[in-house]
Design a protein around this nucleic acid. Sequence first.
DNA 1: AAGAAGATTCGCT
DNA 2: GCGAATCTTCTTA
Length: 171
Amino acid sequence: MSDSADGRAVVRIVETEAYVPGDAASHACRGKTPRNGIMFGRHGHAYVYFIYGSHFCLNVTSEPAGIGGGVLLRAAEPVSGIDLMRTRRPGSADRDLARGPGRLAAALGVDRAHDGTDLCAPGSLWLAAPLRPAPPPATSVRIGLTKEAHRPLRFFERGNRFVSGPASLNR
DNA sequence: AAGAAGATTCGCT
DNA sequence: GCGAATCTTCTTA
């Protein structure tokens, strides 16, 4: 969930991708740098980075302090604050408000200012308990990577129409 | 100091 | 389905 001066936006995460220690595709694979420093901090914090000159991606750090790792939030189902999300993503169909990592960050109003936020504490951006029970996530290879994409580290809710990626991966 | 690559999205054909 | 847009960051010279 995210709070801002414009209101609150709530989504249900339906797709994630993991970047584990020793992973050539991870931003952490070449050691700690100014950009990825948050990944080497404690788990449960936001790692936000700017990509392709126009988009932000939101990750949750996943490893103990000193070890670089994280989980990219790839897609989410809008739950409330939908009008606010439409404002942030003009021209987008409701299904596409948060379907994709850059879209998800935009819908929640996430930018560099959220880098390092503790997602388990009250604030402008945080994780809450599941809104409804869900079956165990399905698994697939990762999307959009040029290295180690074959690893089965993408997790998604099977059958949910807010999941991104080609249909062939979502079975 | 310069260059290439990148966990993407959108619009056009 | 394909390619441009756009800029930050790290790597290499």
